[in-house]
Amino acid sequence: MAKKMKSLGGRSLSKKSGSKNNMNKMLQEAQRAQAEMQEELDRLDEELSNVEVEATAGGGVVKVVATCDMRIKDIVISEEVEDEDIDTLKDLIIAASNEAIEKANKLKEEKTNEISQKFLGTLPNFGD
């Protein structure tokens, strides 16, 4: 015995071409936004390679300068540390280096988030 099919509530099972066109249009917009966002992120990486951050340790006796592409550019050691042992000096350099890298990461993350929000905000119904 075959079961009877219940009413579809006025909905048709046939595919609507308008719905497919809307989906294709949304997909194209998302792909375009992704490509533009990637270009902007690539430009940001290039720009950040020239942005410097500084960090100090030991009350300023060790200063590390790093770029936002995570490269140490300079280490300045005050003459005040000439009497310190090598282990203390190493600790100060490590502390200042880690702080500089944290600052560079934070700046890069902030700029990347700005770009992401700019493009994700243009997509219809993103996050709904």
Results as ranks from 00 to 15, higher is better:
64 V>Q: 00
20 K>G: 07
4 K>F: 07
78 S>D: 09
17 S>T: 07
25 K>E: 11
120 L>I: 13
103 K>H: 01
115 I>E: 00
79 E>T: 13
35 A>L: 11
72 I>F: 04
89 L>D: 02
33 A>F: 05
50 N>K: 12
57 A>M: 02
124 P>Q: 11
126 F>T: 10
10 G>C: 14
119 F>Y: 11
121 G>Q: 08
46 E>W: 00
49 S>L: 03
119 F>M: 01
73 K>G: 02
103 K>N: 04
90 K>E: 07
114 E>W: 00
80 E>R: 14
61 V>L: 11
12 S>L: 05
53 V>L: 06
16 K>C: 11
27 L>V: 08
67 T>I: 11
53 V>F: 04
11 R>V: 13
39 E>I: 07
20 K>H: 08
28 Q>K: 15
52 E>T: 09
44 L>I: 14
38 Q>N: 11
34 Q>D: 07
53 V>W: 05
108 K>F: 14
37 M>Y: 01
82 E>L: 13
54 E>H: 10
26 M>W: 02
51 V>R: 11
30 A>L: 00
13 L>N: 03
83 D>N: 15
57 A>G: 08
4 K>G: 07
126 F>L: 12
7 S>L: 10
94 I>Q: 14
30 A>G: 11
105 N>C: 06
90 K>I: 00
105 N>G: 01
94 I>D: 14
9 G>N: 10
91 D>I: 01
113 N>T: 11
128 D>G: 15
116 S>A: 07
66 A>S: 14
73 K>Y: 00
102 E>W: 00
109 E>W: 01
28 Q>F: 09
91 D>Q: 07
30 A>Q: 08
66 A>H: 06
66 A>V: 13
81 V>H: 10
33 A>D: 07
75 I>P: 00
26 M>N: 12
76 V>L: 07
70 M>R: 15
125 N>G: 13
64 V>F: 00
3 K>Q: 13
2 A>G: 04
11 R>I: 12
21 N>W: 08
27 L>W: 02
116 S>W: 03
87 D>G: 01
58 G>E: 07
107 L>N: 03
77 I>L: 12
125 N>F: 09
13 L>A: 15
